[in-house]
Every structure is written in C-alpha cells, then in structure tokens.
Amino acid sequence: MSSRKKTMLKVIILGDSGVGKTSLMQQYVSKKFSNQYKATIGADFLTKQDVRVDDRTVTMQLWDTAGQERFQSLGVAFYRGADCCVLVYDVNNAKSFEALDSWRDEFLIQASPRDPESFPFVVLGNKIDVEESKRVISQKRALAFCQAKGNIPYFETSAKEAINVDQAFEVIARNALIQEESEEYSSDFSDPINIHLDNERGGCEC
C-alpha cells in the first residue's frame, strides 16, 4: 500500500476564535504573518504542495475553520474525509485551552471517523512569543491533557515568529499520511469496483 502515490492529505484546523489558526496556516504555507486580525468567515482552504514525508511527496490541503460561532455552520461537508485534525489554542488564553475538548468532540461527531480512538489529532499551543508573564497554560498542563487524550502530539508554536510551525506540520503530515493509508487499506477491502475489475480481468484470461 505504501508504494501507492498519495496526492492529497486533508487536514482540518480547529480552535477558538483568535488563537491563530489562519496565521499558523499562512506561516506554514506562505511564510507570512500579519498582525491584523481578520475573522475567517466559514472556512479558508490552502494547499501546500510537495511536502516531503520520509520517502513520500504529498500535497497538504489545509482546511481552516472559523472560530467564531456565528460563522460555523458548514457541518459534515467540512469534516468529511479528514486525515488529521489540528487543535489550536492560545497559551495566554485559558478559555481557548478549555475549549479543546469540545472542539475534539465536535470533530469526532461531525467527521465520525472509522476508528475515533486512533484518529490522529495534533495539539498546538500558539502565541508563545507573547511575554511569559501573560502565559496562563503551562506546558505541563497541556502535555497532561494530550496524554489523557491518547498521547496526542503537542507543539508550542508562534505563527508570528515562525517557531515550531514547520516541525508541527511535519508531524501533522506524517500522522495524516498514516491515517490516510489505514483508511485506504480498509476502503480497498470493501471496494466493489476492485472486485469487479478482478472479475473482469479473470474473464479475459479465459
């Protein structure tokens, strides 16, 4: 299976309003950062091509959501077929950290992955460039949360200063790829076209 060339990985980015989801995405894809806050309406889609994951080259399709409740009504279409879910919070905002659990639940309900237990999540604690005195969520607390949720990989990032962004997305891509391959494997099993093709081939042989 791993020899098959995978072209697209769908990655969903979730988190409270203003935690820096769009900024992280922009930093990763365009290496750009803007101090100006513009709320995402509905969703934004960005593509990062030619991402190297070990011996593979993949394209990452990043689906950025609106954190503001009034702009969230996309529903199942948004989550369907996701290969990895990135949960973002602001280390200087306790509420955004406390909301991670409900964002994770929301994703699991809407996307209803085949195996919710093993579905890859990655948690990003953003805005670590802000002065230490303003920080309210310690790394220890965040790590404890990630461990409790099934050893979710955790990164502390700064979209503004490009800290840990590439490293985080590398792990996101790797985990998304693993997920994608496992999905493919299971879908191959139940693919009626495959059986049909085999039969066709078999028929020709005769």
Partner: peptide, 28 residues
C-alpha cells in the same frame, strides 16, 4: 452577505471534497 459567503464556502467545500474523491479514484 455572511449567509451568501457561508453558502459559497459550503459549495467550495463540497467541490473540494468531490475533487479529492475524484483524484483519489483516478489515483486508485
């Protein structure tokens, strides 16, 4: 406008999903 935008984003999401499924089927 927000509703229109949301509808548009929704359509875009559907299209992307369809495109992904199409690419995947071609690949397969």
């Amino acid at each position: 406008l927000v509703n229109r935008w949301m509808e548009r984003v929704s359509r875009e999401a559907e299209k992307l999903n369809d495109a992904n499924a199409f690419l995947e089927s071609i690949d397969r």
